[in-house]
């Protein structure tokens, strides 16, 4: 395969199929399974193709069970693909060469990679030894990460005594000590409060800016994706649904716009203008067909005592939910 120097991740027709045993409930089925076992083929990833350039931050989206984590595991060398091509930084991940593993990291939200019973500083030292980091480089990077993530107070506490948010920050720092060139982040902000989510996001953005590392991020929080990723890849049932910029996703998958209108008076019936999504005193939110937006805006301004009017695309959360729901209906 011929891959450009600027490509960090190359995936072509990637597939992963699991054979899952299947059996009905009850004694009869249990006895039958003694002689005749049934199994089913599950295509977790079904022929996806994409490329990610060096330094790019890409959101990898999909509902639960879409195949996101399986893909990340194949990209990081944890799972063998059933078929297709994968290359990360010029390496075939499934070969699991140490030179490859030293250049990547995989952070899985709520999965603990630190030693639970000892202070994080000791786990950091263990990572130094595992990644064979020269002492001076290690100290420099460690201190940089401690400062970036504000970890000074946390480093000497046993990991088990840290809150979930604190632990996630420390986990993130531990995963970056070896200055990885590719970051696979699987739900890194899951379960965290809004402030901590922001902190992690800011850190990822800063690390990307400083090191030029490539980031592939899965998250159910669209705020993560909006803050970090210009490009998103959407998969569902193991297939690629969309690969492009966030704005394009909205353009392609939504036929509606939102009009937020503030009127000079209460209790006006707006149902003839569009679907009333919310109404609170003088303020109302309407959902209208994209093609009708100009006409309805003009009508609202002409017919009613409008004091304020804003036309917006629907929130990205709603768009994504809409995409997945439509796919499920098919």
């Amino acid at each position: 395969m011929l891959i450009s120097n600027t490509t960090a991740i190359h995936v072509r027709d990637l597939r992963k199929t699991y054979i899952v045993p299947e059996r009905e409930g009850g004694l009869k089925a249990a006895l039958r399974s003694l002689v005749q076992r049934k199994s089913r083929e599950v295509r977790a990833v079904d022929g996806i193709t994409f490329e990610v350039s060096r330094g790019e931050v890409v959101g990898f989206l999909g509902p639960n069970g879409a195949g996101k984590t399986t893909t990340l595991k194949m990209l990081s060398g944890l799972l063998y693909p059933t078929g297709g091509e994968v290359s990360v930084l010029g390496h075939t991940p499934s070969r699991r060469e140490n030179d490859f593993l030293r250049q990547i990291t995989l952070v899985m939200g709520q999965r603990n990679q630190l030693v639970w019973d000892i202070p994080a500083i000791d786990s950091f030292d263990l990572n130094r030894a595992i990644y064979r980091l020269p002492a001076a480089d290690y100290r420099r990077m460690r201190d940089e990460l401690i400062e970036l993530l504000d970890l000074q107070e946390l480093m000497r506490k046993p990991v088990r005594n840290l809150s979930l948010g604190e632990r996630m920050k420390v986990e993130m720092a531990a995963a970056m000590l070896h200055r990885p060139q590719v970051l696979f982040l699987d739900e890194p902000t899951i379960g965290l409060d809004v402030t901590m989510q922001r902190r992690i996001r800011a850190f990822v953005a800063e690390y990307n800016r400083r090191s030029g590392a490539t980031v592939l991020l899965t998250s159910h929080y669209m705020a993560d994706v909006e803050a970090l990723c210009r490009r998103v890849i959407v998969i569902h049932h193991g297939k690629l649904l969309y690969d492009g910029d966030l704005g394009g996703l909205v353009e392609r998958f939504t036929a509606h716009k939102t009009i937020e209108v503030t009127l000079g008076s209460n209790a006006v019936d707006l149902s003839s203008y569009g679907e009333v999504v919310a109404q609170d005193g003088e303020r109302a939110t309407l959902r209208v067909l994209k093609a009708e937006t100009s006409r309805i805006t003009a009508r609202l301004l002409a017919d009613l005592p409008v004091t304020d009017l804003v036309v917006e695309d629907p929130p990205i959360d709603d768009v994504i939910e809409h995409v997945f729901t439509q796919e499920m209906i098919r």
Partner: peptide, 17 residues
């Protein structure tokens, strides 16, 4: 529990670990 995944991501054979 996924601990093996965490071990496999390191450039070190889990046997040594």
């Amino acid at each position: 529990q996924g601990d093996l995944a965490a071990e496999l991501i390191r450039p070190l054979h889990p046997f040594h670990f």
